[in-house]
Amino acid sequence: MNPLDLFLEPLQYEFMTHALITTSIAAILCALLSCWLVLIGWSLMGDAVSHAVLPGVVLAYVFGAPFALGALVFGFIAVSLIGAIRSTTRVKEDAAIGIVFTTLFALGLVLISATPSQTDLNHIIFGNILGVSNAELAQIALLAAIAFAVLVIKRRDLTLYAFDPTHAHAIGLNPKFLGALLLGLLALTSVVALQVVGVILVVAMLIIPGATAYLLTDRFSRMLVIAPALSVASAITGIYLSYWLDAASGGLVVVVQGCAFGLAYVFAPRHGLLSKLHQHRIAQPATP
């Protein structure tokens, strides 16, 4: 089989084209948002929100509502609870995040175990890329378009907030609003990615692309290009590997992203391990 056949054969199946389109959409959105999350230091927040939506998805299934609606509601609930605990108690942010996301995630697991169903709800946890329907594809595209539009429109304000919230406040911006907006976009993005890779792997798509781009460039504008490009390439590669290896699609997408980060960690021109070792050798004084 020649290389062209390796590329074209999976495209004969509708479930593969749906998987490629859906995963690419989620990859672009997650990668863009991950740039801000990595810059601000909100990686743990991404973990919290992505796990906290689980009970909302299960309850949406129970009541026959769209999964995205339940996930979005609980995403905002999680963000609100974390903010309330942080602002009204002595508990610090990392502890508040841990309390909220573990409790809500555990509630979701309990609901799954207690819900009589002819449907395997485990795909909520592990994803179901190859089972995306036309309706789900349209829903993912709509939610992603909304989140993408907000990110594009508010990108300058969000970037200033990420670098210097004090200066943002001094020029008339509202840091609390921008923080809340970013958390809302995080909840919305988690819903989009949830249907692709599941609750557990969403956090990887929200962190790895931005972290990889952060090693490859010192300019944020370039991060916003590098992260989505790497994320989409990883997503497509992972989907193709899952077809030819008959392995878990979502897991392979994240594994490829992790490999891309590993390569950047070692070979990044200025911030990679080899570059650091070279700089260290140059800085060492010569021994007589």
Rank of each mutant, 00 (worst) to 15 (best):
A187T: 08
A187L: 13
A187F: 08
L188S: 15
T189F: 08
T189H: 08
T189P: 10
T189S: 13
S190N: 12
S190Q: 01
S190A: 14
V191S: 07
V191I: 12
V191L: 12
V191M: 09
V191R: 12
V192R: 10
V192E: 04
V192K: 07
A193H: 02
A193W: 04
A193V: 15
A193K: 08
L194R: 05
L194S: 09
L194Q: 10
Q195H: 13
Q195M: 14
Q195S: 13
Q195A: 05
Q195Y: 08
V196Y: 07
V197D: 01
V197E: 03
G198L: 09
G198Q: 03
G198T: 02
V199K: 02
V199H: 07
V199N: 05
I200P: 01
I200E: 06
I200W: 06
I200Y: 01
I200G: 00
L201I: 10
L201C: 08
L201E: 02
L201R: 03
L201Y: 12
V202C: 04
V202I: 14
V202H: 03
V202Y: 01
V203S: 05
V203I: 06
V203K: 00
A204Y: 02
A204I: 01
A204E: 02
A204W: 00
M205P: 06
M205G: 02
M205E: 00
L206N: 05
L206F: 03
I208P: 00
I208V: 14
P209L: 10
P209S: 12
P209V: 13
P209H: 10
P209N: 10
P209Q: 09
G210D: 04
G210Y: 07
G210P: 11
A211Q: 06
A211P: 09
A211K: 08
A211F: 11
A211N: 11
T212C: 14
T212P: 13
A213G: 14
A213D: 12
A213K: 13
Y214C: 05
Y214D: 15
Y214T: 07
Y214N: 15
L215K: 14
L215W: 08
L215I: 04
T217K: 06
T217V: 03
T217R: 06
